[in-house]
Every structure is written in C-alpha cells, then in structure tokens.
C-alpha cells in the first residue's frame, strides 16, 4: 500500500495502515524495556518496525518467502541478542535495522553459495539492497511515522507535487493548518535524519 494509494481509502483501512496507525511508542522507554527483557517490548517493536524490516528484505531478496524468513530471523536474533544493545548509547530501530541488513546479507550469501553448486545456472544476477534503496525504505517509514494528517500532507506535497492550496482543498483543511503541518513535518524529518546520520558515521 503506497502512501498515495492510502489517501483514497476512507473506509476500510489496509493492513499496512493499521500497523502504521499505532502511535509509535516512546523510543527511549521502549528501548529500556526491550533491553530489560520485557517481552511486551518485543511485540511493540515488531508492530512499529516489522513493515520497515520486511520491506527492506523484500526489496533486497525479491522473494516473499525469503523476506519473511529474514524478518523472522531478525526479530529472533534481536531478542536473543538484546544484551548486546545498550539503550543509553544507540537507538533501537537503528540497531535492529543493522541486524536485518546482516540477515539479508546472510541470505544472499547462502543463495550465491547454492547457486554456485548448480552448474546449469547461468548469469546469476545477485540482487542486493543498495544503500540508496535502504534509505528510501527508511524514509518511507519516517514519513509513515509522522502519523495522520502529516504523512498524507507530506506525501501529497512531496510525491504528488500538490500545492499547499490544492492540499488545503483536497483535505478540506485551512491553508494555514496545511502549511503548519508541513513545517513541523520537515522539522521532524530533518531531526530524525540528523540523528541517523550521526549514528551512521
């Protein structure tokens, strides 16, 4: 379900939206409970980021069953390896995305090892998740995480090229409110990505 498509769904909310509609748990509080072994934290983390991780895996592996396996393995590894996560030093989402990327690499390695055993296989093109693709998925997650109406306004403005006036009319929302939501959204996104970049470097 793309951002754009969701705008047309007034009634039955798709599954993706159901997950995304959940208000994101307070990250620090969630990280602390996860680290302490509170198993409800694992479920909350799953509700928050499973679509992000599954999408990363899908785009890298281009195979639904393999993507499900990676998603499963990622959360299992994260829970079993929670002692390796320091809630005071890093953010939980970045940490589990790192695990997911390693699981994706494992899956691609296994695939290429198996492919090499098949003499008949020709030109095995190994798909991989590029940094650029992974970025795009994380950006989509961040826009989702803005919650409504901001994610709707942002996707209209950024991806459909709608003017502020058009958004105002389409959502039946005062122009000033549309502009305010856009400003606050941009501030949130910038802050989020500066945190990410600081951790990545």
């Amino acid at each position: 379900m793309s951002l754009a498509v969701r705008l047309d769904t007034d009634g039955g909310e798709p599954m993706v939206a159901d997950l995304a509609v959940d208000p994101a748990p307070d990250p620090r509080e969630l990280a602390r409970r996860f680290s302490a072994g509170d198993d409800t934290a694992l479920e909350e983390l799953y509700r928050d980021v499973s679509a992000l991780i599954h999408t990363l895996a899908l785009r890298a592996l281009r195979n639904a069953a393999d993507a499900e396996d990676v998603t499963q393995a990622t959360f299992v590894s994260a829970w079993r390896g929670r002692d390796g996560f320091d809630p005071d030093r890093g953010d939980l989402r970045g940490w589990i995305v790192g695990i997911a990327k390693r699981r994706i690499a494992d899956a691609l390695d296994a695939r290429s090892r198996e492919s090499r055993r098949l003499a008949a296989v020709k030109d095995v093109a190994e798909p991989a998740v590029s940094d650029r693709e992974a970025d795009a998925v994380e950006i989509a997650y961040d826009i989702e995480a803005l919650g409504d109406p901001r994610r709707t306004i942002v996707s209209l403005a950024f991806y459909e090229g709608a003017t502020h006036q058009q958004i105002s009319e389409r959502l039946d929302m005062p122009l000033g409110t549309v502009k305010s939501h856009l400003r606050r959204s941009l501030m949130t996104l910038r802050e989020r990505w500066e945190v990410n970049d600081a951790q990545a470097s």
Binding site: M15, A20, A51, L52, H54, A67, A136, Y159, W193
Partner: peptide, 17 residues
C-alpha cells in the same frame, strides 16, 4: 536537504509481513 532527501527517495510502499 531534508526535503530533497524525501522527494528524491520517491514514494515507497511499505509492506507489512
């Protein structure tokens, strides 16, 4: 830059497992 990053990424469909 933040705006360009979002626009440049294009809309991505997030798929829940």
């Amino acid at each position: 830059d933040a705006m360009a990053r979002a626009v440049g990424a294009g809309p991505v469909t997030l798929v829940a497992p």
